[in-house]
């Protein structure tokens, strides 16, 4: 009862309430309340994640496992960022209430939290993603082989898009007059045509497929047919 029936009732009731709230103006405020609760729980989930991170890393440090020094760095950086943010260290006061310290903005550069974001988190995240350029190029070089029609289409389109979005497009096909009948052959025009018509069609069909899948899965959950989440306890 407590482990299976009540969770199923909670799931069906909240989901159905949100669906009904969409169609009925009388239950609109119920839906808004449920959404508020959902946002609160999502914020609590961050606390849960942080708790997990602390537990794993503290265990590593206390048992001196391999790489415990890195775990210590994670813990220290977490603690520093957390304290800076929660206590709004160095925050500029709120002009409407300068006597209330915690009313100031915790983000932005003069604050310690803002400094950590600007000079630690932001460069690290951007560089991590930037580095993927090398790995994507490397993987493409190893995996792309024009051995059949499908592979040629994939490779050719990627090549055209890469050329068309750079100065190479002007360099290679810039000599074709814009108002001539052959203007469609200019690489920038070919790129636009491919993205606007062909790949949009493909993406549209994928989106429709995903939408049908999401709707079916949601219905299975709301009707209590899919109960796989119950095993997570």
């Amino acid at each position: 009862m407590l482990r299976r029936t009540i969770p199923i009732i909670i799931l069906s009731a909240t989901g159905t309430m949100l669906v009904v709230a969409y169609f009925s103006p009388f239950t609109l405020s119920w839906g808004e309340t449920v959404l508020d609760w959902f946002n609160i729980l999502a914020a609590v989930a961050f606390v849960l994640g942080a708790g997990n991170l602390l537990a794993v890393n503290l265990e590593k440090v206390s048992s001196r496992k391999a790489g415990w020094a890195y775990a210590a760095i994670t813990l220290l950086s977490f603690a520093a960022m957390f304290i800076f943010g929660i206590f709004k260290v160095g925050a500029v006061p709120n002009p409407s209430a300068p006597d209330v310290h915690l009313a100031g903005a915790y983000e932005g550069l003069p604050s310690a939290f803002g400094w950590m974001y600007e000079y630690v988190l932001s460069p690290l995240t951007a560089t991590m993603f930037a580095m993927l350029a090398f790995y994507v190029a490397s993987a493409a070089f190893r995996a792309f082989r024009a051995k059949n029609v499908e592979a040629i289409l994939l490779l050719g389109t990627a090549f055209i898009i890469l050329l068309g979005r750079t100065a190479a497009a002007t360099l290679l096909t810039g000599w074709i007059p814009v108002d001539s009948a052959f203007a469609v052959l200019r690489l920038d025009n070919v790129t636009t045509a491919v993205t606007e018509h062909v790949s949009t069609a493909g993406m549209r069909a994928i989106t429709i497929g995903i939408a049908l899948g999401v709707a079916a899965t949601s219905l299975r959950l709301l009707l209590g047919i899919d109960r796989s989440y119950l095993s997570k306890g």
Partner: peptide, 22 residues
């Protein structure tokens, strides 16, 4: 750098959730 990123980003999202939602 990787360990720093993990710690700082976890705290960033937690603090954001605290001040903007909780």
């Amino acid at each position: 750098a990787e360990s720093l990123l993990v710690g700082v980003s976890a705290a960033y999202w937690m603090v954001n959730g605290f001040w903007t939602t909780l």
